[in-house]
Amino acid sequence: MLELRLVQGSLLKKLLEAIKDLVTDANFDCSATGFSLQAMDSSHVALVSLLLRSEAFEHYRCDRNISMGLNLSNMAKVLRCSGPDDIITLKADDGGDSLTFMFESPNQDKIADFEMKLMDIDSEHLGIPDTEYQAIVRMPSAEFARICKDLSGIGDTIAISVTKEGVKFSTRGDIGSANIVCRQNTSVDKPEDATIIEMEEPVTLTFALRYINSFTKATPLSNQVTLSLSSDLPVVVEYKIAEMGYIRFYLAPKIDE
């Protein structure tokens, strides 16, 4: 038996909006740790890993580990039927072939339930080693989204370069080129407005901009985004969900032939 009650139901809605265009079908795994997903995009260039810890739920019952295959675009459609302040409860029976979503309005005057059929999905689970990154940049997530959107009007790739001067985002296209430099800035009124750069060594990596742009759909989940970079390794773009979990996107870099 699975029964998960999420008072801040909008979190689940935002998570689905963040991944539905990147991944078509995926398995949601439920264990004592929490509700999680790991999936690759269809080109196997990007990987998304998300976790909502069991503590994020007001009620968390998961009698045994369960993997539920779902079409994410359909799941997003179901979640869009919930109100912005609704409490969402997920329910599934052991060995069942469906997942039930229950939406309760905050004052309990409206209760809706939607049942979705589960799918069998063959998915490869990748082991992601713990790595010390050469550079870690924390910055306002809205600022990062704005930069990615602006650069995508100019070129198809984004070079992210971290030096002691700051972090530079660059692109180049038919109409010309663009560089945006963000310097470390900790003298802000609110901590979420800070830009913090931790650098062991300078690093520059180039990525397909359309993927990075797609990751920024997670912006409503967190005021800050963290970029972790090392030479010849996928970048990690992480949005922390308060104390409750995270969504991490990994993207393989482009390599000069």
Partner: peptide
């Protein structure tokens, strides 16, 4: 020319 690496080139299947 730039070569797009795949994510499996970095992370192994468990």
């Amino acid at each position: 020319a730039c070569l797009q690496k795949k994510i499996m080139d970095y992370f192994n299947s468990e």
